[in-house]
């Protein structure tokens, strides 16, 4: 394991916070994208089905 010295807490917490926020952002973006894609798909099917 890497020796981080006396700044270990600061480094780990800032990297941890960054990665957590970035991953959260990516997950939110991805989930919303899938949701909307699905919703649009069903809506378009309904629209074309109704004529």
């Amino acid at each position: 394991m890497l020796e981080l010295g006396k700044y270990a807490d600061a480094i780990l917490s800032s990297w941890g916070a960054t990665l957590a926020l970035l991953i959260a952002l990516i997950l939110v973006t991805w989930r919303r994208s899938v949701q909307v894609k699905k919703a649009l798909h069903t809506a378009e099917k309904r629209a074309s089905g109704n004529g």
Partner: peptide, 19 residues
Amino acid sequence: IRTRTELRLVRLHRLEIRE
């Protein structure tokens, strides 16, 4: 990705209004 989602939402919104 997010812009694509937003554009899809606009389209969805239009379809819903039409319905």
